[in-house]
Amino acid sequence: MMQIPADIPAWLAIIVALLLICGSLITLVGTLGLLRLPHFYQRIHGPAITITFGAGCFLLASMLYFTALQERPVIHELLITAFIMLTAPVTAMLLMRTAVYRDLRNGRRIADMATDPQPVTGLSATAGAKSSGLMEEPRDRNPE
C-alpha cells in the first residue's frame, strides 16, 4: 500500500499530481513514437522526449514532494538530472553513428528504408556506387 501522509497540503498534492500526470503522458508519447515511427533515424527522437521532459517532470515532482514532506531542501534528485543530461546525448550519438556505419556497410540508402516507395532520382553517387558493386541490392527492407 502507498504510504502518503493523510494531512498532506492541498497545493502540494495538486502540483505533484499535475507533474506526475504530465510526465507519464509525455513518457507514453515518447515510447509510442519509438513504436510507431517508420524509420530508425526518426525513431531515435521518440525516447529523447521521454528522457528530457518525462524524466524532468518526475524528478521535479519528487524534489517538491520530499522537500515539502521533510521540511528541508531535498535536492539530490539534481544528481540524476545532471547525469541524464550528460549521458543521454552520448548514447544517442553513439547509436546514431552505429546506425550510419551499419547502413553504409550493408550498402543501404536511407531512401531504401523509408516507407515512401518512390525511388530517389538524380543521385549520381548511387550510380557510382552501383557500378563499383557496392549497392547491388538493398537487403532487408523495412517490413513496415
Binding site: 502507498m2 502518503i4 501522509p5 493523510a6 498532506i8 497540503p9 492541498a10 498534492a13 495538486i14 505533484v16 499530481a17 499535475l18 506526475l20 500526470i21 510526465g23 507519464s24 503522458l25 513518457t27 507514453l28 515518447g30 515510447t31 521521454t50 518526475f58
Partner: peptide
C-alpha cells in the same frame, strides 16, 4: 487530497509500465 495523489500515482505507474510494454 491524499486520494488525488494516490490516483495520480497509480495512473503514472500504469503509464510507465505501458511505455515499457
Amino acid at each position: 487530497m491524499k486520494l488525488l495523489l494516490e490516483i495520480s500515482l497509480y495512473f503514472s505507474q500504469f503509464c510507465v509500465v505501458l511505455a515499457m510494454l
